[in-house]
Amino acid sequence: MDKKIRVLVAKPGLDGHDRGAKVVACALRDAGMEVIYTGLHQTPEMIVQAAVEEDVDVVALSVLSGAHMTIFPKVRKLMKAQGLKDVLMTGGGIIPEEDIKKLSKLGVGRLFTPGAPLKDIVEYIRAALS
């Protein structure tokens, strides 16, 4: 068996700032992971369909638009409905601490905010999957 960690990196909604997502995608690649990058303007349905078809271990969303309280719960719900209960959901963006707590209760994994070292993201994913 030669299993690779597969990660879906997606930008949901109308938010057009994808530099952060690209930087994270490259860091994960450099850590030896296979990163499926779907690009901008994804609907929750498209994200979950891609996660199903690509058999990813991780779904990572980048949300800088303030819509995180809508998008994360919706994607999480769709993931559960599609049988992706065991897939780790993580992400990052400009997300207030109290929202991170609320999302955590819904089953969303760790969320990273501006300034988070790339190393932490890589280590978090590795630890969560091991």
Binding site: K4, A25, Y37, Q49
Partner: peptide, 18 residues
């Protein structure tokens, strides 16, 4: 070098959606 990959072909394959 690291065995990782960026798989980016899906970016262009979204005309059909779900």
């Amino acid at each position: 070098f690291c065995g990782g990959a960026i798989l980016g072909d899906r970016i262009r394959m979204q005309k059909i959606g779900v």
